[in-house]
Design a protein around this nucleic acid. Sequence first.
DNA 1: TTGTAAGCGTTATCAA
DNA 2: TTGATAACGCTTACAA
Lengths: 347, 347
Amino acid sequence: MALLKSKVTISDVAKAAGVSNSAVSYALNGKPGVSEKTRDKVLKVADSMGWKPNSAAKALSDASSRAIGLALAYSPETISVDSYSMALFSGMCTELERNNYSLMLRIIPVGGDTMSIHRDWIADGSVDGVVITNVEIGDPRIELYKQHPEVPVVALADPSVTGGLPTLTSDDVAAARLVVDFLHELGHTHIARVAGPERYGHTFGRDRAFIEETSEMGMHYDCLHGDYSPEAGADCTARLMAFSEPPTAIVYDSDSMAIAGLQTAVAKGIAVPEQLSIVSWDDSFVCRAVTPGLTALKRNVPASGKQLVPMLLRQIAGEQVENELEDPYELIPRGSTAAACVPGGVR
Amino acid sequence: MALLKSKVTISDVAKAAGVSNSAVSYALNGKPGVSEKTRDKVLKVADSMGWKPNSAAKALSDASSRAIGLALAYSPETISVDSYSMALFSGMCTELERNNYSLMLRIIPVGGDTMSIHRDWIADGSVDGVVITNVEIGDPRIELYKQHPEVPVVALADPSVTGGLPTLTSDDVAAARLVVDFLHELGHTHIARVAGPERYGHTFGRDRAFIEETSEMGMHYDCLHGDYSPEAGADCTARLMAFSEPPTAIVYDSDSMAIAGLQTAVAKGIAVPEQLSIVSWDDSFVCRAVTPGLTALKRNVPASGKQLVPMLLRQIAGEQVENELEDPYELIPRGSTAAACVPGGVR
DNA sequence: TTGTAAGCGTTATCAA
DNA sequence: TTGATAACGCTTACAA
């Protein structure tokens, strides 16, 4: 109806080569069942006729689509700020490509529900596996895929929120320790965090890690939650700095919020890093682009995208997979952090 | 083999409802050929059994996949800097979603060849239509799709390089005029441009527009080409400023290069905007994030993504489509531009 | 209004 | 080693 297909079918090749359909199929798929002579002839004929397998027919026949599904709910504004997703796509695609798989992408407006997309995917077989990101606490997608153990899935989240589904996790606890230790060594005793939305599992995990780590270090810790938008970053920063005893360092859950925080501080006449240290969770080229450069937690997102693909392919091949850990974060110190400013005192 | 499909098929529903397969098909597709009574019964039964159409079977039967293909060649580093692609995805997906279409995404390492992906798509019918971006001069994809007029395609490029293929174009000539006029009014008589790769059709179009516009205005104009990387932006800026008579304003083809240019200037002790004005082609939140804010040419990329979808769907429906123009650019003046600094003189 | 059956292009079973 | 042939799940022309 829509697109004229490769008019050359297996039957055409069979006719031209003077053999049967099945002989052609075996020959083209490198399977036993044909003599070398027929195989050669078939291959030659198929090639000269420009035969390519029809994907729909193949999919129908062997119940696989060679596509991995990824459904995101994003606002158009937020998504262009989001270097994470793009890096994830690129990593996934690179690895999928090597296995002749495609990425089936669905992006719906924020507030929309991806559940119906997932239900369709499970039912209509248009994808061979699924990736779940931005897992929320009590996320209905987790329950859905637990009810469909036959569907290969990888959740990018903390195992505590994925209910036993195959999970690829970033070691946010270690990262939190990295930052807290770093700031502690700089003499900070009161730090704050401008976190992402509270409903996300990874936000919650970081929340817990920071509380634990700061309390262990005997540091004072405050936390506000935003939505990754620059506006939220600015607002939370203003509120934190309005405290009677404001923090001397703020860690932001995204570079967009960190940069907004930096601007807010500067606008308020708060010197960075002299009076306020700033750390961004997730590094991107903007962290290098601003002045001062933003100290950041860096992770290799494309690598994570690559890493998740074999976890999916192994499940598609019928194997069991274990949870995995991403490459560790690395702290990149830049100009936005310095020794704590002790109010009215000398260090 | 891979994923257990919706075990509920049309035959199952037919059996349960006590009618024939075709009756079920007609009923479920809202087509005439069944009585209202049977239709109701079928719908009820199908719903209670949780029937969902199998996508492969549907695709095989009516030769359509309900997916649009997009194949990009990008380096992992560049892509995370690239807010354009992400915004394009999001716009396309939003509109595709409303029509029950998916985006089939392929990203291969830079230097790789997307031609084989396109050839596969044409032959295996796994997508109903295709979007082509980053069209190069003499791009082989143009020739390929001209040889396959049956395949719905939209090229995001200047019509001069798309050989008559349906094209969605941004009015870069108007945008160039916008910038040149703006700088001219500020008194600049010698401006430069750090452009994208020369091989891209849109780079070439901008090159021409700038030459024309500046010569009309009697301005001196220089141009260097980079690859959108911050490194290239820094390098080209350094070279331009090393001229015996350096430009007083530079227009960059991407925000990543513009920001690198800004940093380079600052590092060299060149005051922005007092001694050098900077303009970024394409606005993103980084342009607001740096100090001074970057004057930028803004366009609504998600809107372009949305706009291209109907052009594709109409072709899929068998209609002819005309070339279209994107929403016009808008110049957003920020702190990075000011009146030209006349060397050794007063204005 | 209904049901039967052919066809879409593969893969895979089973006789020959 | 081969070649019919059924099966995958759906659409649709054709008969009843």
